[in-house]
Design a protein around this nucleic acid. Structure first.
Lengths: 106, 106
DNA sequence: TTGTAGTACCGCGCAATGCGTAGTACTGTG
DNA sequence: CACAGTACTACGCATTGCGCGGTACTACAA
């Protein structure tokens, strides 16, 4: 039911991971996450996360007008963003390993 | 730095997993979690979680006086608790797998 | 006696963050 | 024109882990 709490603190990482494959705009990132298996991500969460990462200086941004719909606000990883991605993913992998060992005893 | 957000929604699972190995009281569970690698778990978080799980009907509880310190409030898994543990751990393992595949492309 | 440390628990209020809902705006199709 | 799809934003809520402080009991030291 409520997978939502699992995303806490991990959505940042997920978004960074998606953007690491190349620049992307909000709606695209949302689709990327859902395609990856995170089916229940709310779009508002992703837009919020992108803004937060941007405000934290981990992303740069530029707007591209589109003639097939509204404008697109692209986000792009910069050096601090890549550094953060590395740190966070290591942190997460370690955490996941710990949790797995805890759970798998059962 | 801030591993705290990673615990969101997972502490329930971690606590259930520890209790699944046998009845335990709060302080003991805290030590169990830290020993398992969750070094930064605040004790208040664990007590809060135990109470939440208890109120949700997933645990039973009994108090045992101790002559080597204060009383101990033991918690014990019941059937709904075990069911929840199973569900949640499956959910988590799937989620972790998804995240790993996302992260490991980088 | 006073103090300190370890054990064991509880309550209060805060902060972070994902989500629901609603709203704006543009394009293309029936 | 109505409607769906795309794309983004703003507002406020709910959950939940944590910090801090407080209570209470035992044991041991100064």
């Amino acid at each position: 039911m409520d997978t939502s709490q699992l995303l806490k603190g991990v959505l940042d990482l997920a978004v960074l991971a998606v953007l690491d494959r190349g620049d992307g705009y909000g709606y695209e990132v949302v689709r990327g996450l859902r395609a990856a298996g995170l089916n229940e991500v709310g779009d508002a969460s992703v837009y919020g996360t992108l803004r937060r990462l941007y405000n934290a200086g981990l992303l740069t941004s530029y707007v591209v007008p589109s003639d097939e719909g509204p404008h697109r606000k692209y986000y792009s990883m910069n050096a601090p963003g890549k550094a953060r991605l590395r740190e966070t993913s290591e942190q997460w992998l370690a955490f996941a390993k710990t949790m797995e060992s805890l759970v798998k005893v059962a």
